[in-house]
Design a protein around this nucleic acid. Structure first.
Lengths: 222, 222
DNA sequence: ATTTTTAAAAAATTCGAGATTCTTGCGATA
DNA sequence: TATCGCAAGAATCTCGAATTTTTTAAAAAT
């Protein structure tokens, strides 16, 4: 039997750092020093270094020879680019899912939407949604991943996963009032409806509509 | 003054390994042991390990926790998936280049095509094109990268670069007779012509036509 | 004969110290 | 006063040994 020592495995370090990076637990543009994180995780600098390399692979930290690691800067331009590629992949993947998915996929999509919708209504109803943000993040991710889950292309899914993570990282998540939430409820319902109707083109449009406010360069609010 | 010691910098290791991986210098599915490559490059295993992590970022090696690195297996399915995503990104990027590129881009594209066309004609004319393969690879890459070079999205270009490398890795390059070359000459010319005409939709189709034989699951020959 | 256990070998990972490279601040020179 | 050079300090990178995990092989048990 394994004893819980308080030390963390590398996977935990990876997941923990990934979460911190995506949920803006670091200042954008700040250095990420392996030597400092070493103390936090109770391991050597090399171990952290490796994890950082793996995170750089996903694009969540930037790596530069002899300069170490940095949290990517936030920029309207980058958000636009990521949104653009995300829509491209997500619309294509969803269209493929519609063709290949069948009842099983429709069931999973409905389930994912049900959960997401539930959270969003709770957020919409309350004054202080801060405690629900984490759950909402997870549900949103699951819904959008379910959309493309039956596309049949691991390559496309991996690609989407990377873009999605970087997209998230570019958004500001701190102290916002979730004004967009009622709009989002509508969007997600529209996407679900279009997908279940089997109308590929309509679904593509709904996905595009859902994300198009991030293509203007004006919004950094979610 | 620096003395040439025969030791290689990490960047050299990276480039060298990348080339070996793309040009099928390893057996597919084979393990890539840092401990073995250490001797080849005259450095420690950790240094190689880091390089391998960076290559795993591009998808040229697979990494698994506690299992080390492996050359990705070749499979018709994977080639189809990579081709699909590649067409998606390349068609989109080229369409954007057509909109944003201007004369400068057209000039660069014409130049890239000129070089590529030159090589392809030489290959078409000779009996033993083996000495020209490397140059052809580089020219083909440059042409396709030039297509999307004016798209204005670093994100899209990076994504494409990854997919392109993996796509290449999936192809068999050994001892083939370049029967496809005359077909390719036509394809590349068609793409150039469509792009210069400013017809986005036509260009998308020509790019798709160029790569569609890899979408059938029957071709592994280039 | 097949499965399970156990032990040895091999491989992958971690570690901390030493080497290298970059950054910073002070002083010399123009 | 501004620019350049230099040195001290800090950060990054490299290394080979030590540790942990996986794999292999042989022996024991069913």
């Amino acid at each position: 039997m394994k004893v819980h020592t308080g030390m963390n495995d590398e996977i935990d370090i990876y997941q923990d750092l990934k979460m911190r990076l995506i949920s803006n637990g670091f200042e954008h543009g700040a250095k990420v020093r392996a030597e400092e994180l070493r103390k936090v995780y109770g391991c050597s600098a090399s171990a952290v270094r490796e994890v950082l390399f793996r995170l750089a692979a996903v694009g969540l930290v930037d790596f530069q020879e002899q300069k170490g690691f940095r949290v990517p800067m936030r920029s309207p331009q980058k958000l636009i680019e990521l949104t653009h590629v995300r829509v491209l992949l997500e619309a294509e993947g969803t269209a493929m899912s519609i063709r290949n998915g069948g009842v099983d996929w429709e069931a999973r999509l409905t389930a994912a939407h049900h959960k997401l919708s539930h959270i969003e209504k709770r957020i919409h109803a309350t004054d202080d949604p801060s405690g629900l943000i984490e759950i909402w993040f997870a549900s949103e991710k699951e819904f959008h991943e379910t959309l493309i889950s039956a596309c049949g292309s691991e390559t496309l899914k991996q690609m989407h996963s990377r873009v999605y993570a970087q997209f998230r990282q570019q958004l500001m998540v701190a102290d916002r009032n979730f004004e967009f939430i009622s709009q989002n409820i509508r969007h997600h319902a529209d996407i679900l409806e279009a997908a279940l109707s089997g109308d590929e083109q309509l679904t593509r449009e709904k996905i595009h509509d859902h994300l198009k406010r991030h293509l203007t360069g004006k919004t950094m609010g979610d």
